[in-house]
């Protein structure tokens, strides 16, 4: 397996899923073509200036900044549906349409859903 698409479909805080997806993506970076796809509630991870202090969870946006080489695709229709249209987003992300998002998933060797 040379390429992997980690698909995050759940909100970044409140469960371990987003943290798990970021962990998996970070350890796969060495030697693999890795893409993290944010879909549905997963798109909240793209918001800049996250503060998780009160949640006692790691700040997940800092992880995205730490792993700047990680390719992060955000499903734009999900983002708009959730009213994040005019919010400041992390600069490392790329917004993509439904069709391009699916195309990216199809083009990689494996899709792992979180």
């Amino acid at each position: 397996m040379k390429s992997v698409f980690y698909l995050l479909n759940t909100a970044p805080y409140g469960s371990e899923k987003a943290f798990g997806a970021l962990n998996a993506a970070a350890v796969s970076l060495n030697g693999m073509n890795v893409t993290l796809g944010l879909y549905g509630d997963g798109v909240y991870l793209a918001a800049a200036d996250q503060d998780s202090t009160n949640l006692r969870m790691p700040n997940l946006s800092d992880i995205l900044y730490s792993y700047g080489e990680l390719r992060v695709l955000v499903h734009e229709p999900s983002l708009i549906e959730r009213g994040l249209f005019d919010k400041t987003l992390i600069e490392t992300i790329e917004l993509v349409d439904e069709e391009d998002f699916l195309k990216e998933m199809e083009n990689l060797d494996s899709v792992i859903l979180f």
Binding site: E76, F85, D86, K87, T88, L89, I93, E94, L95, V96, D97, D100
Partner: peptide, 16 residues
Amino acid sequence: PNETKLVNFAMANSIR
């Protein structure tokens, strides 16, 4: 700043 956000949002998509 709000309009800058709209521009950044618009330009974050390769099709646009």
